[in-house]
Amino acid sequence: MERTAVGGVTGSTPAPEVAELLDGLPRQRGPLGAAPVSAPPPLPPVLTEATASGVLAPGTRAFRPWRLLPTPTGTPFTFAYAAVLAVTSLITTYADPDLVHALHQGSSTDVAHLVRTPVLVLLASALWIAGGFLAPYTLGFLLVLTALERRIGGVRTAVVFLAGHVLATLATEVPVGLAVLVGHLPDSSSHRLDYGISFGVATSTGALAGLLRPWLRWPVLVLFGGMLVQDLLNFADPLTNWGHLISLVIGVAMWPVVRRWRAAHTKSVSADRG
């Protein structure tokens, strides 16, 4: 189908002065003798790579909502961990309450268990969500660990999470053990129930903030840190609340490390695509 040219003559070539006026308009292929059609400029390399691979290349910015949640191929560590937490949450919801209490007690990182089986309980305590799968920290786990794993990789994300989980647990439980030892706390304090993923999530949040742009980094830290301080001021569970603040500080302290890891991960992904 041909476009009607100026003057109502189909397929005729416009006069030079008219052609100049129409130079910015899209042209169709005309009959023999028509003005040649200029080839479109080549895409920048980054867009060419994005189009060829079906995804945006590193360095481009586009909001893709599905990338906020874990996937088996994109974020295998977070996806697998979330699946385990879903199973343990179902056990918590539907299993016999006595069995659930026994499992939680056996996974607790209290002083008594840390003295006897430290490695076992430090790992087992991270398999449960305090409050079940609908607890607020569950959403934080999914969003934060997914974002962190996409930036630094699964193994490094696991290191960040476990570092916060272990260090914050020790930072809160060791003083309790010492206080019991010198008689400042009763022996029952050595058997307090302590399990969950919140320390690891708080550390991962702090670490992720260091990889965000400043306009997003500081609001995240202020809002999340403010929430933790408010929980501490409420004095409902001071030991756990202090653990959350310690976890956040651990994550912030890891900024130099996670930034190096992001650079290495980005380089590795680019090499794989190349």
Rank of each mutant, 00 (worst) to 15 (best):
R151T: 06
I152Y: 03
I152W: 00
G154P: 10
V155P: 04
V155F: 13
R156F: 10
R156P: 03
T157S: 11
A158T: 02
A158C: 14
A158Y: 01
V160T: 10
V160C: 09
L162K: 08
A163H: 01
A163D: 02
G164R: 04
G164C: 03
G164V: 05
H165K: 12
L170E: 08
A171M: 11
T172Y: 10
T172L: 14
T172R: 09
T172F: 11
G177H: 05
L178K: 13
A179V: 13
L181G: 13
G183A: 11
D187H: 09
S189H: 14
S189W: 13
S189N: 12
S189R: 09
H191K: 14
H191P: 03
H191S: 14
H191I: 05
R192E: 12
L193W: 02
Y195G: 04
G196V: 01
I197V: 10
S198T: 02
S198M: 03
F199N: 05
G200L: 09
V201T: 06
V201F: 03
A202H: 07
T203Q: 04
S204F: 07
S204P: 02
T205W: 07
T205Q: 04
G206L: 07
A209Y: 00
A209S: 12
L211W: 05
L212W: 02
W215C: 08
W218R: 00
P219H: 07
L221Q: 00
L221K: 01
G225S: 11
V229M: 09
V229H: 07
D231A: 14
D231G: 11
